[in-house]
């Protein structure tokens, strides 16, 4: 009986794929994603687009919270910055969307340094507080600079045309989001196996030990913050395009909670977990409304009037229940299942 997988060299350990079988599965997965829009109607496509955007945002937050162990409630701030960077450069100034996307990453990344420098000097929960504060400050700044941002009325965003190809239908927009999602997965995987990624994990697991090993805590926490905000900013721009409208009302604080909930549900620190969590959490209100729908019209009515509240209630419950009962999230369940499968009939 096989007692486990053994990796003998570092190269084997950091390889992205370790067998032909795995590569075939990845290929099947990609084909599945490409095929998805053909099976869904308009509503389904918008739902899977939203899942993909949330997954990108969650992967961004994962760098900071999952790998480096810093809680951030400023997800919305960086999404707003990214969305506005894209909207202003592309719609107001007429720059090409590809530069808009680059700016949507770069602007939040630099803004994160401003938030990060004071808060990363301290341990623990201070980052949560300052990032929360930054979310409010950013919203106020958007309202304040209304010459640039149109204030509370927001900016209309068209579907982008990149290299002469117009992503004008919902299905095409999904492909764009899925492609950026794929790039994000690759970027995260490669970051994870680099020196920087290992440093992040070291900081999370034991910052004193990490420091003794020669990791500059402040610099690496800032790297984590910047990388995270870069990706989150791009997810914000995509969300703006998805809504076809960028206002601060489009980015409620609930998005920050949602991103944290996605990480907890999926399993902290795992990229696959972030994707699974996004699918689960974006799908959750749909499943709930389907279940409520079985209870007749009044239940349905109740659900549609309080949609935002029900969402908040579900996110809160999911966060607490997962932390209580399954702290390693869906990925933890998957690992347990895998282990049970390999080791069966023995338990350990």
């Amino acid at each position: 009986m096989r007692s486990g997988y053994f990796k003998e060299t570092v190269a084997e350990h950091i390889n992205l794929t370790d067998s032909t079988l795995q590569r075939i599965w990845i290929l099947i997965g990609l084909i599945f994603v490409v095929a998805l829009p053909f099976y869904f109607g308009l509503y389904g496509i918008s739902l899977i687009t939203l899942m993909a955007i949330s997954a990108i945002g969650a992967m961004g937050l994962n760098i900071l919270t999952g790998w480096t162990g810093q809680i951030s409630l400023g997800q919305t701030a960086f999404m707003v910055l990214g969305a506005y960077a894209y909207a202003i450069s592309v719609e107001s100034w007429g720059w090409p969307p590809i530069i808009g996307f680059a700016l949507a990453g770069i602007v939040p990344a630099f803004a994160s340094v401003l938030v990060g420098v004071p808060s990363l000097r301290l341990k623990g929960l201070y980052l949560a507080i300052t990032t929360l504060a930054s979310a409010f400050i950013v919203n106020q700044l958007v309202l304040e600079f209304d010459g640039l941002t149109n204030g509370a009325s927001g900016i209309f965003v068209n579907r982008p045309t990149i290299f002469g190809y117009a992503f004008d239908t919902d299905a095409k927009l999904f492909y764009l989001v899925a492609f950026i999602g794929l790039l994000t997965v690759l970027a995260c995987l490669n970051l994870r196996r680099s020196r920087i990624g290992r440093a992040f994990i070291a900081i999370r697991d034991n910052d004193n030990a990490a420091r003794v090993m020669g990791i500059d805590l402040r610099a690496y926490k800032l790297y984590a913050f910047m990388a995270s905000s870069f990706i989150v900013g791009i997810s914000g721009a995509l969300y703006g395009i998805f809504l076809s409208f960028v206002t601060i009302d489009g980015f409620p604080l609930l998005l920050a909670i949602e991103a944290l909930a996605i990480l907890i549900v999926g399993g902290m620190g795992s990229i696959a977990g972030a994707i699974l969590g996004a699918i689960f959490l974006v799908g959750l209100p749909e499943i709930t409304s389907a279940i409520f729908g079985m209870f007749g019209e009044t239940a349905k009515q109740f659900l549609s009037t309080g949609a935002h509240e029900i969402k908040g209630l579900l996110y809160g419950l999911v966060i607490i229940l997962f932390l209580r009962l399954q702290p390693h999230g869906l990925m933890g369940l998957w690992q347990d299942a895998k282990r049970a499968w390999t080791l069966w009939p023995l338990r350990y």
Partner: peptide, 19 residues
């Protein structure tokens, strides 16, 4: 995790008040 629980509680309470 402890902080996340209180954040989860805060969203639940906010939703409950409106509901």
């Amino acid at each position: 995790s402890q902080i996340m629980v209180t954040i989860g509680l805060s969203v639940i309470f906010r939703a409950l008040v409106t509901l």
